[in-house]
Amino acid sequence: MTKTFRLDGREIPFKEGQTIIEAAAAAGVYIPHLCHHPEFKPHGSCKLCTVNIGGRLGAACTNHAAEGMAVESETEALNADRRALTQMLFVEGNHFCPSCEKSGNCQLQAVAYHLGMMTPHFPHFYPARDIDASHPDVLLERNRCILCELCVRASRDADGKNVFGIGGRGIRARLIVNSASGRLAETNMSVTDRAAEVCPTGAIIRKRHGFTVPIGQRLYDHHDIATQLPLPARRGEGRGEG
């Protein structure tokens, strides 16, 4: 007999070892997330996927599904928290969507649309962050980085290259490049790497691909990110397109 748990009152089947978010996605149920990617090890850092697991808050991408557990996700309170977290991500970086190549295909923006974010609300930090344009094919735009470590995981676990890392702590945390000069041109990163397309935001951009899809035809122009499951099937269809 298949095991199940309840998610917002709905029976969700799961296989042993599956996380809540994986089981939900397999059943076609969207739980907002940014640092989770089905192909990579959980990171549990953005906290957007926070759900109520039997009265306790936990990340749906790091907690395993268990027989009979009762999970709440689509509550007003949880979505308000998710919206606040998303607003913080916006003010912590420099997100000027009108001038961003990723706009329309960006998961941060799409999650904000999904949550009905009308304003970033909090005072903007306008942090000073470096751009690295040294690589011939890949642009590193740290102003848009949300430190989800997907590029770190992809480069290490899929590409076997270990090009990226996170340096510094707290508000000084930043994406670093593992080369003597710290510049991307001096790594063996290639534009065909998984790390070049996995970024949910416009922080890692394939050069000369910007603005190729007209406004109105981009991934999230008309379709809520919640309807775009499952994510792996969408590879190369705009997600990660520069």
């Binding site: 916006f90 000027f96 009108p98 001038s99 970033p120 903007h124 306008y126 942090p127």
Partner: peptide, 11 residues
Amino acid sequence: ITGGIPAMRNN
């Protein structure tokens, strides 16, 4: 709402 394009001069 965000400062927008003019705020790109903020740094």
